[in-house]
Design a protein around this nucleic acid. Structure first.
Lengths: 268, 268
DNA sequence: CGCCATCTTGACAATAGTCAAGTCGGGTGG
DNA sequence: CCACCCGACTTGACTATTGTCAAGATGGCG
């Protein structure tokens, strides 16, 4: 079974056998991390990129009042801040929510993957943009949606994302997070989250059993939340259509540029 | 006087004379756009990249209820979605808030700039990451900060950003947006924004006069808002320090990769 | 001079937060 | 094997912030 990181990238660009092999090599060095550990801490200069192979993690910011705000979820197959090394230090942290199996990848390897494998580079860019789109959707949601719809929207989003990596069966998925964590995500108090979840259960939209979540009526839940999956860019064909592929082009142009230099200097 | 796009990029990477020349060429084709016009509309397949040379624009999302949520401000010197072409369609719009002078750049040109000018590529990446950092900060703010601090925080952020491109004089800057737009930004009702601004004036933190904003006590305002400018990555040295420069490296590696291919095929 | 967008005000309602006191349930150690 | 413990969840009463509605003031611009 291929790992979920590769599976996820294949949704965004078609990968060759060589691409896949390179990715397998890059993610071969895995480590087990317990729950509630920081992979990268705020104000660090990041040293490694990480890919989550199993478990849930999140990007979060610590607040002046001691609380925390969760700004993104990392699910199996997600890389975290693969590109973070461009900025000198982190302004947020990455922490595990559950025990995780993660691959630690030196930035050097990321660079090499990007350089030798245009398809991988393209898939990574795609991921960055989708992450940003999710952020936008959250920003809109936190500001404008009432608490119940906001929570429902989040549940829909997680379902679609988990579905894309095969972690949803029969409208049901494990959501191994506490109500407090959900509160830190939605910008609500944990008390209010509790009440909202009760309402969703009463409406027979969801069912909960020990960290598992059962979606009883996904269509009704999506309607209720006003959820439209566009922004996740999952069903738009990924790398399998003929749309613009800037990174491949950039690679070609960079080659041409360097060749031009060489012609002038006449070296080898 | 160099244009502000170049000035802004120079904060992020040191540019050579050739880099600057290429950027000047790329942004030579300018157009005047009136206020409240879309540069790119939601659901479009983007066709051109834009750079704002004068005026204010924003990224916004239309809401199901007909309202809109402003998720980012574009100030002079900012590019908008220079990389948007990777995703097949926009999930948000770009619109002007004031009359703007914009440069329209074909994606092809962006690709060429990125390919032939590693420093420019690096600066563009830097911009993408800073934009994302701003988004994170907003997400936290909308969720957790009370309305008055949220508005104050926004005013601090705009001041620092405008300062970086020389548009702040004597703690004073023009903020040419309506209270309704500010409300769409902060996720508040326009009525409440009005009251919050009145409070800030009563506290003698700011003064307003026809679309101009005067910061009376920037230190007190920052303290009040809990504003810390880290996340804008403005004073961290930009391209003038010896930290990691992945894009330059990627260019080099890509060259090596292609040369390897050529060696094998033996083609000229 | 008058129009229209913008801003302002007041009264009231609704959403969500806070505080404080339980309950529940799984895991640990005796 | 059972009791206890602790984190997670639940509940109720009360408060605070913010939204909504509706009406009116202001002020630049034609």
């Amino acid at each position: 079974m291929t790992n979920l990181f590769i599976r996820k990238l294949e949704l965004r660009a078609s990968l060759s056998e060589a691409d896949r092999h390179a990715l397998e090599q890059a993610t071969a060095k895995v480590m087990q991390v317990e729950a509630n550990r920081d992979l990268i801490a705020q104000a660090d200069a990041p040293e490694h990129a990480f890919v989550i192979l199993e478990g849930f993690a999140c990007r979060y910011k610590l607040l002046p009042d001691g609380g925390r705000s969760i700004v993104a979820y990392l699910i199996p197959g997600d890389g975290c801040d693969l590109h973070a090394s461009i900025l000198p230090r982190m302004v947020h942290s990455i922490g595990t929510l559950t025990p995780c199996l993660v691959a630690r990848i030196p930035y050097q390897t990321i660079k090499e993957l990007a350089a030798y494998h245009p398809n991988i580079y393209k898939a990574l860019w795609w991921s960055v943009l989708v992450d940003e789109a999710i952020l936008l959707e959250w920003l809109v949601g936190v500001g404008r949606r009432p608490a119940d719809k906001q929570v429902a929207h989040f549940l829909c989003e997680m379902m679609v994302r988990l579905q894309a990596v095969g972690l949803v069966a029969e409208n049901s998925y494990r959501l191994p997070i506490t109500q407090s964590e959900l509160a830190d995500t939605a910008g609500l108090s944990h008390v209010h989250v509790n009440r909202v979840l009760q309402d969703l259960r009463k409406e027979r939209l969801i069912e909960q059993k020990r960290r598992g979540l059962l979606i009883l009526d996904i269509e009704r839940l999506k309607t209720f939340a006003g959820f439209v999956a566009d922004y996740l860019h999952l069903n738009t064909g990924g790398g399998h259509q003929g749309f613009y592929e800037p990174l491949t082009d950039v690679a070609k142009l960079q080659l041409k540029a360097r060749q031009g230099e060489q012609d002038q200097t006449g070296s080898a």
